[in-house]
Design a protein around this nucleic acid. Structure first.
Length: 648
DNA sequence: CATGGCTGCCC
DNA sequence: ATTCTGC
DNA sequence: GCAGAATGGGCAGCCATG
């Protein structure tokens, strides 16, 4: 590939959106990530030479964002508005589009196949990367009640669609849906970016001296440089996850060499957080950490909070996905001075914010935390107080700690922060390695209203490096472990058509338990995970004969749940879940715990069919209530309080 | 001005 | 969040 | 083992509708 001669535009031309759309089309036709990355690399090489100003916008369009999470506005566009837009621009009804969606499984394909029927005085100019990106930003900026902002958004979408040629509408629609689904996500985009700057080094000359560095290099030599570059680039990005700032540094002369310095950690700018991989048992965990020292920590059920404290005393708080949630937690900001040691001037602390009952000094459930207001919260209006549980320290007093081993980071954290009742605490931990000790520690964690344990290496491979392996930590929850959580046996009574790679089969089902007293099926959850591809197609076949036109009278269903098809009860499926919650939409044990509310499953997944059971043998509503009441923590949040309190 | 649907984001 | 799948 | 793409419950906040 020659990045100048083979590009579909010339230096000085505006970068056509078609160049990106065609690259997406190619990428979509391959499943090998190596091939995918090579194609995107080539596009990036051309852009860096011919239209360098458009590189950042192209990256954003490739990862489906319009800016860094912590500052970008959202599109505020969903399937509803998109279907309406496609319907209007093709002169068809919303119902017709929805009907076709069942067969096609992809709104983008429908848009691509349709002829746009808007009358045009003259054909609009071709889309450019800049015009598409700008329109996306304008859509995000469109807001306001009574101003018809949704209509305005639809008009902007329709304008885009009319200007689309060829496969462009496919990717415009998918971008607006927030799902490109071409087998490319941020990690591969970063690898392609790294490869592009390596293969065709940024240069002030045009054409540059080096078009393809591989021509003067042995393949092994290139491969080594490449993996080195990827490591540096992804590392740098995780320290400065902002393409507006990061890309210019990368494209400087010697950008790669200096990238870790030019894109260093900054207090006030979020860091990509370390994440954890699920582990099915203690043995598996021990296998992963053979011959390494590790530590076990309670895994609290709250919200990840990366707390930044700047020298000027200001505080910023970011979520797991780098959203700015400072406005949600003014109480944490106000409390910082209560929990820092005397020498602390600035820090980045990795924590979990957990709902906390000050009276009983107990942790409250995630569901309670989620009722907290989220925007511009005033200190005196806080209804759900939180306690911060800190577990890692990434930065202190101007010093970057992410290259220190975990035991060291923890040491510095414990030295410099001060637990404060109901306000701040260290995540409880123990440096244990014996299987039985870990087992009982896990039980203790669950007893203490936690989800389970986090397991982390202390010395070897213990630096804070989300770029290399984003799942370098392990998590153990009791529901991952066989025999530690009761499963449920439930009946599919409805189904939804699958989308994307599940087109042609049902993609999700509505499950119910059986209420013996009323002889009715009551819904407990939808389910869409745990199925192998084979399961998906065989269930679709098996259940087809059981499709019914109307829900049976013996189905208790809330108005807000409308499956694409109803099913007569015919099978029983074993299902696992992490928790049970009070539900506004599901009808299991309706009114039993709270008036007008039922019970639902949290994180439901399919395990297997229960060939030995018939629908009436499914888990009963009574059993569901018992399971709810047996939870260590629930939303009534007290063992002493009777559960039934709806009438007094 | 209340309600309900849609969206984004948390898990 | 959980899970499956191709590489 | 990674990266990507299917899918879950449930909440606040925003906007249209009546």
């Amino acid at each position: 590939y020659h990045p100048i001669d083979d590009a579909m535009w010339k230096k000085g031309d505006s970068l056509p959106y078609m160049a990106l759309a065609k690259t997406f089309e190619t990428i979509e036709s391959y499943s090998s990530r190596l091939v995918i990355i090579e194609h995107l690399t080539n596009l990036f090489r051309s852009i860096m030479l011919l239209s360098p100003k458009d590189l950042v916008m192209t990256i954003y369009l490739s990862i489906n964002k319009i800016g860094p999470s912590y500052e970008a506005k959202e599109l505020g566009i969903g399937d509803h508005i998109l279907i309406k837009s496609v319907a209007e621009s093709t002169g068809r009804t919303v119902d017709a589009i929805k009907q076709e969606l069942v067969e096609v499984g992809d709104l983008g394909i429908i848009a691509q196949n349709a002829r746009m029927t808007q009358p045009l005085m003259f054909s609009p100019p071709p889309l450019t990367i800049a015009s598409v990106f700008k329109t996306f930003q304008q859509i995000a900026d469109t807001s306001g009640t009574g101003t018809g902002s949704q209509k305005k958004k639809m008009d902007q979408i329709k304008k885009l669609l009319i200007a689309c040629k060829d496969c462009e509408s496919l990717y415009i629609i998918r971008s607006l849906q927030g799902k490109l689904r071409i087998g490319l996500a941020e990690r591969s985009v970063l690898m392609a970016l790294a490869k592009a700057v390596l293969v065709t080094p940024p240069s002030t000359e045009f054409p540059p001296k080096v078009i393809d560095i591989r021509k003067n290099m042995r393949p092994e030599e290139f491969e080594e440089k490449y993996s080195n570059t990827v490591a540096k680039v992804t590392r740098a990005y995780s320290q400065l996850p902002n393409y507006d700032l990061f890309v210019p540094h990368l494209c400087e002369k010697d950008g790669i060499d200096n990238i870790l310095k030019t894109c260093s950690l900054n207090v006030g700018i979020p860091v990509k957080p370390m994440l954890a991989q699920p582990t099915t048992g203690i043995t598996q965990m021990l296998d992963r950490f053979t011959d390494m020292e590790f530590t076990c920590e309670f895994k609290y059920d709250g919200e990840r909070a990366q707390i930044h404290y700047l020298e000027d005393g200001s505080v910023h708080i970011y979520t797991r996905n780098l959203e700015d949630y400072t406005g949600k937690y003014p109480d944490i900001a106000a409390n910082v001075k209560k929990f820092i040691g005397p020498n602390v001037k600035s820090f980045i602390l990795d924590c979990e914010a957990v709902a906390f009952d000050k009276a009983t000094k107990k942790i409250l459930s995630f569901q309670v935390l989620s009722t907290r207001a989220r925007k511009s919260v005033q200190l005196d209006q806080i209804k759900v107080p939180v306690c911060v549980f800190a577990f890692d320290l990434l930065f202190l007093n101007g010093k970057n700690l992410i290259n220190e081993p975990f035991y060291k980071r923890r040491e510095v954290m414990v030295e410099n922060f001060v637990p404060s009742d109901g306000v701040f605490s260290f995540a409880k931990y123990a440096n244990i390695s014996d299987v039985n000790d870990i087992q009982s520690y896990l039980e203790e964690a669950v007893e203490g209203n936690c989800e389970g344990l986090m397991v982390k290496t202390l010395k070897e491979k213990s630096i804070y490096e989300p770029s290399r392996r984003s799942y370098n930590w392990l998590k153990i929850k009791k529901d991952y472990m066989q025999g530690m959580t009761d499963s449920l046996d439930l009946v599919p009574i409805g189904a939804w058509y699958g989308k994307g790679k599940r087109t042609g089969t049902y993609g999700a089902y509505l499950l119910a338990c059986y209420d013996e007293d009323n002889e009715e099926f009551q819904t407990l959850c939808k389910i869409g995970t745990g199925f192998s591809d084979k399961d998906l197609s065989s269930f679709t076949e098996q259940l087809k004969p059981h499709v019914i036109n109307q829900p049976r009278n013996m189905f208790r269903i809330s108005d807000s749940i409308k499956p694409d098809v109803w099913l007569s009860p015919s099978q029983v499926w074993e299902v696992l879940a992490a928790d049970l919650s009070i539900s506004p939409v599901h009808t299991a044990a309706y009114g039993n715990l709270e008036s007008n509310k039922g019970i639902a499953l949290r994180f439901p997944r399919f395990i297997r069919t229960r060939e030995d059971k018939s629908p009436e043998d499914a888990t009963s509503s009574e059993q569901v209530v018992l399971m709810y009441q047996n939870q260590k923590i629930n939303n009534h949040n007290s063992e002493s309080k009777p559960q039934k309190d709806e009438d007094y």
